[in-house]
């Protein structure tokens, strides 16, 4: 059984730090994780002094397998993970005008709980990309922000299959027209599925686009909020897709699902907590309780939301988007206990 080898990445070089940037971690740990190493290479990211990681990280030259893989994350049991919004202070973030995390040379990667942000005026990049992966990637629980005035920029782009992209909040990639201004984009055709589940995508020229239209569509798209996107969804998706929601009258003229979509919602009104806080309010009627339950999804089952909160088990009616609204436990209930 592969051994987890955890290295601490902290730009502030706090106690226990192994590397002061994700790019240095990648250079230091790069290699063949299979065979003699038999290792899961873990970068546990921290931000003990408030400094952003401003170096672009390219994950390249690795040999991985389904059991010997790469995991880049913030540990939710520590205090360095975002709270479902873009946060500075002691929250780990990749922040620079460059492609922040690019995976052209590793086949099995988990990217969990990071923040990606472009500075004002940044662009001509995508924040997070993978390419030519023969294995899989799990890209989940991330906040991806285009900054205040990006140009020609995208949130997440994948040129691979078996990319499981869920519980991400992606916003502000919308300053102009063109397909580079997207939330999530699948760039090439592969006869294997990608999953785009429970993402909240706001203020993007294109919300989600797939080029993977072979046959009747390979990629699955479920439970996504697409708010204030010029074109919410583009492409042909696999049978069973649906339960996406937008405030627009349409999810997109070229959006189609093999056999027809189920449970999609248009012209819905969402009640977010704030202008840049896309958690759902208790009063929301556009997304709460309107999603499909993916607890036992055949391709990408999961149970929690971007905050790590349980979505309610296999029998619950899930919310659409990255956040599952969970009411605070009432005081009187504690008192009764």
């Amino acid at each position: 059984m592969a051994t987890e080898v955890v290295k601490i990445v902290d730009p502030d070089n706090g106690s226990g730090t192994d590397y002061t940037s994700l790019s240095a971690w990648e250079a230091g740990e790069q290699g063949d994780l299979t065979g003699a190493r038999d290792e899961i290479a873990v970068a546990k990211c921290r931000c003990t002094g408030g400094t952003a990681d401003t170096t672009a990280c390219e994950v390249n030259g690795w040999t991985t397998s389904s059991t010997c893989y790469i995991k880049i994350w913030t540990d939710p049991t520590e205090s360095y993970r975002h709270n479902g919004t873009w946060q500075t202070g002691n929250k780990y973030r990749l922040y620079a005008d460059t492609m922040l995390l690019y995976v052209p040379g590793a086949d099995h990667v988990i990217i969990d709980g990071l923040q990606f942000g472009l500075p004002p005026g940044g662009g001509n990049v995508v924040c997070l990309g993978t390419i030519n992966m023969t294995g899989w990637a799990y890209i989940r629980n991330n906040v991806v922000w285009g900054g205040t005035s990006c140009s020609n920029a995208g949130g997440i782009s994948v040129w691979s299959s078996n990319q499981y992209i869920y519980n991400n909040i992606i916003y502000d990639f919308a300053d102009n027209s063109g397909s580079s201004y997207h939330g999530i984009k699948q760039e090439a055709e592969f006869p294997y599925p990608n999953c785009f589940y429970n993402n909240t995508i706001v203020n993007c020229y294109e919300g989600i686009r797939t080029a993977n239209a072979g046959g009747n569509g390979y990629d699955a798209i479920k439970n996504n909020i697409l708010y204030n996107c010029t074109t919410p969804i583009i492409g042909t998706f696999a049978a069973g897709s649906g339960y996406n929601a937008t405030e627009d009258a349409s999810l997109g003229a070229s959006y189609s699902v093999s056999g027809g979509a189920t449970g999609d919602h248009t012209s819905h009104t969402f009640s977010f907590v704030g202008a840049a806080d896309f958690h759902l309010q208790a009063s929301d009627t556009g997304a709460r309780g309107l999603g499909a339950n993916l607890y036992n999804d055949a391709l990408c089952p999961f149970q929690t939301d971007i905050d790590g909160q349980d979505r309610g088990g296999s029998g619950a009616q899930w919310d659409i988007g990255a956040d599952e609204y969970v009411a605070a436990y009432p005081y009187y209930a504690y008192a009764q206990q």
Partner: peptide, 26 residues
């Protein structure tokens, strides 16, 4: 993949300011 992806001995990786302090593995 070795040529495109792998760092070799002597290849610069990152640049930091004078004030930067390095981690235990660096």
């Amino acid at each position: 993949k070795d040529r495109r992806g792998c760092y070799k001995r002597g290849m610069p990786v990152v640049v930091m300011p004078d004030t930067h302090t390095w981690g235990a593995e660096e």
